[in-house]
Amino acid sequence: MLKDKYASEIAQMLAKYPVKNSAVIPLCYLAQDEYGYLSIDHLQEVADILQMPYTDVYEVATFYTLLYTDPVGKWVLQVCDDNPCCFTGGEELVAELETQLGIQAGETTADKQWTLQRVKCLGGCHGAPMLQANLDFYYGITPDKVPALLETLLQQEQRGTMSISGRFAER
């Protein structure tokens, strides 16, 4: 259970706010890092910690893009396909990743290694084409750099703890 395993981190989160409910997003991030995604049971656990109605937590988890209520891969690759990235190589990057991973954007590989998504502007337009892998930005990813990027991410996975929510550094 989160409340036992992460008692001190949760206490620190709650101490930041005069009202407990404010910690719902940080707690969802914590649950998502622990369990890989947010199932009904995981959301219920968050609701219990905050003494919030389950439906309110569910509403939050489904409103925000970075809270995943479906299972995702170990690496969530989110490619910016917004203006101006789509005119400066973003579409080519999506196509190359789809080919290399053998999936379409929006899907997860069967081995649960990679999830590929299109996302809206990440604020990395100056380094287009760009993507975020578990919320770390990678700039200037032209299609020729895709194999090396995937290799790098696999190496990182070997090295350290994973945080799909970007709570701690992993490189």
Partner: peptide
């Protein structure tokens, strides 16, 4: 020519597809 984008490709809607060609 902008490729048509399926609704589930953007955020959420995650589906399981083929095995990763990079699977170890």
């Amino acid at each position: 020519n902008h490729p048509p984008v399926a609704a589930h490709a953007v955020e959420g809607g995650v589906h399981t597809g083929a095995t990763s060609v990079l699977a170890r």
